[in-house]
Each structure stands twice: as C-alpha cells, then as structure tokens.
Design a protein around this nucleic acid. Structure first.
Length: 614
RNA sequence: GGUCUCAUAGUUCAACGGAUAGAAUAGGAGUUUCCUAAACUCUUGAUCCAGGUUCGAUUCCUGGUGAGGCCA
C-alpha cells in the first residue's frame, strides 16, 4: 500500500481539471521535501513548465491552491523555484500511523505463487569458509528473504564442490600422515581439519618439487625449456603444473586417487564420504552460527556429468556445432561474445556443460521459472554466456535468470592469499567480533544481571549484527575493503547502532504496558521529528520492493540506518512516557511501536537479529 | 590486445536526471536529578579529467586517465 497514492492522484486530477493535461500517477515526480525547506512532500514542476507554457511560480500557485482547496490532507504549500512543497495535515499523519499499525505484514507483498531458487555459498570441501564466503552467504540469504517478502516462494540452495583433485589431495595427505585422526580426536572442526590436510599436501608437494629442481633431471629440463634470459625461479613457477602432472610422485598418487574415485573404487569412495562428512558438519556449524540454512543441496559429484544430453539436443537444433576433432562449441559472436567450448574432443564436459545440466535439473526438480546465482564478479562473463546459451536453448526459465554478482572482498593489504596466510577464516572472525563485543559489554555492565545464557545470546546477536551490517551495507557490485578493526565498530553507521534503537523501543514499550495503549485522536501539532519518522515508515514497502527488483540488500541496510537515526533523534528530543498529555503519549508509543516493528523486519530481511536488551 | 566493472571528504559508505552532494569515522567543543550515553548537539573536509544531451548531470552518452576482473 502506498500512502502517497492519494496525493499523486490529486495532483493528476488537478492537472486534468485546471489545464486539461492528462498524465498518470506513476509519472508524478514526488519526493520528500528536503530538510532545509518547509513542507513534507515536493512536486517537481519543471517537467510541466514546458508542456503547459506557464512559469513555475504560476503553475505552483494554481496547483497549490487547488490542492489545498480540494483535499483534506494538504493544508498549505510553498513554491520555491520549480518545486511545489506541500504540508500535510495532522490528520494525514495520524491516519498513516493507523494504517501502518493495522497492516499485518507491513512491507511484504502478497504471494505471487512464483517460485525462485537462490543459490549461494557454494564452497569447496577442501577449505574452510572464509571472508569471501561470508559476503556471499549474507547477500544470498538476504536476497532470499527479500524475495520472499516480495511474494516469491523461495528455495535456498548451495552447490558443493565435493569432487576433483583438491579433495583428493586432502584425502591422500590424511591417508599418508593422519594416523587415523578424526575431528573428535584432534578436537577441531572437520572442515578445518580437512583443510589442514590440504595444506599439508601442498607443503609436501612443494618440498618434493624444490628437491626435484636441484636434481639432475630438474636442471636438465630447465636448461632445455627455459625461455631466453629466464631465471630459475620464474621458470619453475610456470612449470609447476606440468611437474605435478608429469613428474611428481605425490601428485601422481593424488591423480590416481581421482581416477579411482571416478571408477568408483570402494575404499576411495568410503574415505571420500568420511572426509566430506566431516567437512559438512563443520560447514553446518558455521552456517548455524551465521543463522542461515538451505532447503536443498546440489553436489557436484552428482551434477558433473549432467548436461551432455543438452549438448546433443543443442547440436540437433543447430545451436551448437561440432568441430573436426569432435569437440562441441557454441558461437556467440553475433551478440558480442566469443566461441565457447562445451564438450572437449575426448567427450569430457566443462563447467559450462555442467551448469547447463544443473539448471535443467533444477527446473525438473522444482518447476522454477527464476534462478538467482550468488557468485563473485570474476564469473560475470561465465554467467553471461551461460544465460545466453540457455536462452538459445529456449529453456522455459531462460528469462528469469539472474547472476547476483558481487565484488571481491579485499584486505587493507590487498587480496587474500592462502599462500601468504592472509585468508580471514570465517569461524575465527565470528569468534573475534563476539569477544570484542564481550569486552565492551562488560565495561557497560548493562547485561550483568541477566542469566548467563541470555547474555551469551545477546553478545552473539550484537557481534554478528556488527559484522553482518558492515558487510551488507555496501552495494553488492562494489569491491569492498575489509578492515577487521572497522568490522567490530559499534558506534555510528553500524549494526549495533540500529539494534540500540530497537532495544530502546522495546524498553519503552515494556514500561508503557502496550496493551493499554489508548487513542491519539486528540493529538495535534505532530512534530517535525515525528513526521520524519512517518515519512520513513511510508517508504518501507517501496524500499523492500526495490531491494528485490535490484537484488540489493544494501538499500535496505541504509534505510534501516536512517530510520534508526531519526528515532534516536526523536527519542532525545521528546518525552514519550512523560509526554504532556495522554494523546501525545499514546501517539508516541504507537509510533515507537511501528518504528520498532519496521526496524525488526528490515533486520530480519538482512538476516540480522534484534536483541531484547543490550 | 579485446571486453566488463568501479572511480565522491584523510578513510569507509550514500544520493528514482531535481533544490545549497548526505552520513559515519578520525580531530576539536559540549549534553546525564528524565523512557538504555552502543545515544544526542555543534564544528573542519569531496563529485578523476575533457566534451555532449538536458530547464537541470555525481547520475545518461562519447573520449581519456587510474584501479580491478575475465578472455587471448
């Protein structure tokens, strides 16, 4: 429901009546009046000045007079330059508050019956989750909730890359050096443990490689293949993959393990199940801490062979073509993209093939018409190509595909590099923000009287609130610099600042005994701060809608911040419980209640919890 | 080399083509007998460059510069 529908309609009616000019409500440029001018809403007159051949001043006066005379809501106006600023009556504000209070799920749209699948997180099983995953998870999760609020039936999913050479490296290292260790025996999360064996493999391999470089064989290769003037370091850096595939002992074992896995060799499969099982338990723990969950999971081990039939279909339809060597390609040059390989000459598929197959499988599984892929922007081109192919294949969901692309997370020192040990681990980060919150909370002493479990819950809510808000307030497509110090800030434009506004409201409502909240019919002189809050509340459904259309939770994050800021100001300026009269008190309590409700809902949509106290 | 994305206070972020470009942080100065001071008030400081479209451009278009990604 749009509370501005009324004034838009009146404006349109006025233009028709006074000037015989027809337009639609959607075309009416109406904004909130800027703080420095008096008025509540502003019509921009410039577009009509030319059309109607009237000066802005004249136009403003005619329309302003008409609006004041013909509507109950608008009580006065002022024309500044080409802007018509109108002031709304107390009645309008009170009715607005009534309306908002009466709407059950304010900000949500009715169900559309349309299903959408949202994919996010999508980790590899050989490494624990890190900072980049956190941004991905928060974006995907929040988008899922925002789409739900916009009436979609959302299915949340992740694709787990559980196969390939990487996990074989972990498996091999565990087999060689693990001595039967388990997460329980080592007292470590399973995903970290498996990640540690991956690192151990890489270390072992590197040692082996370095020794080989000194060997007669290594030196001979260097002398034979080096480019002019190339030194040993840069040569062997480039040669690493070839060495892994053609010479390395441990590399050969890992590759053999992959072959055994593909052949379904029981011992290898059993080990693979066991290690991935450890990883999943570790991931789930992290997901739980972050407060997210999935409706279904796709494993690459089950999808990596999909898509080959689609290639046959495409070949028959003439969308793809086969080269002499047997490889299959698609030519997208007519739309400014390249030729792209879909099936190698040996018949093996590439990522693209697999993604085509997975999309089809999802359609079969759920009948969805829309899919959202939350993947970093380094994959922009991949998804452009994928979507174009699916369009050409005339898949029924081809028009509902969206790549929720986001910029990489960098540290103040640059990109995270596992080689340099600068990868920020998700679990470590969460632990760190919570411990930071604990320190500050202890200084404040506000929670000291609460039971210990409740204290812990609140500390988690605040710590994660700080971290999540910090990451989600930035527009997805922008690259972000992550400074760990700033992520635990709790003053200013932060999660805890907004939580604090929510907590204040809860405290006020507790003391007010809300069930006895009475009428505010007699309230007059609605203050500027109160109007500002109501203008914000009116905006909320639109913000939710736009966040959905643009797949942009940051809009909602910034909205929540502004609403919280206006509430803090209001709170300082006026007395709520000790208001001068009952009508004022009731109005302010009701207003506080609605601000609290919207803040909580906005945070819900961002995946951030609102504590009871802090 | 081709192509995509980004560029706003010292720093981190905002601004459906609309008024004097907003916040936060950092620095300085204040606010507590009163509903939670993780708050509030005051103060210093910015649109990468050159054109174009427009009544009006941070926003749209063209070219350049810088940073990053993808492809080769």
């Amino acid at each position: 429901m749009d509370h501005l529908v009324g004034i838009r309609r009146d404006f349109v009616r006025c233009l028709a009546e006074k000037f015989g000019y027809n337009t639609t409500q959607d075309n009416v440029p109406v904004n909130e009046t800027r703080r420095e001018f008096s008025g509540d809403y502003t019509f921009v007159l410039f577009p009509y000045v030319k059309e109607l051949r009237k000066s802005p001043a004249e136009l403003g006066a005619v329309i302003g007079d008409w609006l004041v005379a013909h509507t109950d809501n608008i009580i006065s106006y002022q024309v500044v330059q080409g802007f018509l600023n109108v002031s709304m009556s107390d009645g309008f504000w009170k009715h607005t508050l009534d309306d908002i209070s009466s709407i059950k799920d304010y900000g949500s749209s009715p169900a559309t019956g349309e299903k959408v699948i949202v994919e996010f997180s999508s980790p590899n099983t050989n490494k624990p989750l890190h900072l980049g995953h956190i941004r991905n998870i928060l974006l995907g999760w929040s988008c899922a909730r925002i789409l739900e609020a916009n009436g979609y039936d959302v299915i949340k999913t992740q694709v787990i890359n559980d196969r390939g050479i990487a996990i074989c490296k972990s498996m091999l290292a565990w087999q060689k050096f693990g001595n039967g260790a388990t997460p329980e025996s080592l007292q470590i999360k399973g995903d970290h443990m498996v990640g540690d064996y991956y690192v151990l493999f890489e270390k072992t391999f590197r040692t082996e490689y370095e020794m080989w470089q000194q060997s007669a064989e290594g030196q001979a290769i260097y002398q034979k293949l080096k480019k002019a003037g190339q030194d040993t370091d840069s040569f062997f850096k480039e040669y690493k993959n070839t060495y892994f595939n053609d010479y390395s002992v441990i590399g050969g074992e890992a590759r053999q393990m992959l072959l055994d896995w593909e052949a379904g060799k029981p011992e290898v499969r059993a080990l693979w199940h066991q290690m991935n099982g450890w990883v999943y338990r570790g991931f789930d723990e992290t997901y739980t801490k972050l407060g997210v969950s999935f409706d279904c999971v796709y494993y690459e081990s089950e999808t990596y062979l999909l898509g080959k039939k689609a290639i046959d279909d495409g070949l028959q339809k003439g969308i793809f073509y086969r080269q002499d060597d047997g490889s299959v390609w698609v030519n997208l040059e007519d739309v400014g993209m390249d030729r792209k390989i879909l099936l190698r000459s040996d018949g093996t598929s590439v990522y693209m093939t697999q993604d085509i197959g997975t999309a089809q499988k999802r359609y079969e599984d759920y009948g969805i018409r829309r899919m959202v892929y939350t993947v970093a922007d380094e994959q922009d081109y991949h998804f452009k190509v994928l979507f174009e192919i699916l369009r050409r294949m005339e898949e029924p969901y081809a028009d509902g595909l969206h790549h929720l692309s986001y910029g990489m997370v960098e540290l103040p020192t640059g990109r995270m590099k596992s080689r340099e040990g600068t990868v920020v681990d998700a679990d470590d980060l969460i632990t760190e923000v919570i411990s930071e919150v604990r320190t500050i909370s202890e200084e404040r002493g506000e929670l000291a009287a609460l039971p210990i479990e409740e204290q812990e819950l609140i500390l988690r809510q605040i710590g994660l609130g700080a971290l999540k808000f910090f990451m989600i307030k930035v527009q997805p497509r922008k690259r972000m610099i992550f400074d760990p110090r700033e992520s635990v800030d709790m003053q200013g434009q932060t999660g805890p600042y907004i939580q604090n506004a929510g907590v204040r409201i809860k405290s006020v409502l507790r003391k007010a005994n809300t069930e006895t909240a009475g009428s505010y019919d007699k309230y007059s002189d609605v203050s500027e701060l109160e109007k500002a809050l109501l203008r914000q509340l009116i905006q909320f459904p639109q913000v939710v809608k736009e966040a959905g259309i643009n797949y942009d939770p940051s809009a909602l994050a910034n909205y929540a911040y502004q609403l919280a800021r206006d509430y803090h100001r209001f709170y300082h300026e006026v007395r709520i419980l000790n208001a001068p009269d009952a009508a004022a008190k009731n109005f302010r309590i009701a207003l506080s209640g609605q601000v609290g409700r919207v803040l909580e809902k906005a945070f819900y949509l961002l995946g951030i919890e609102m504590p009871e106290r802090m």
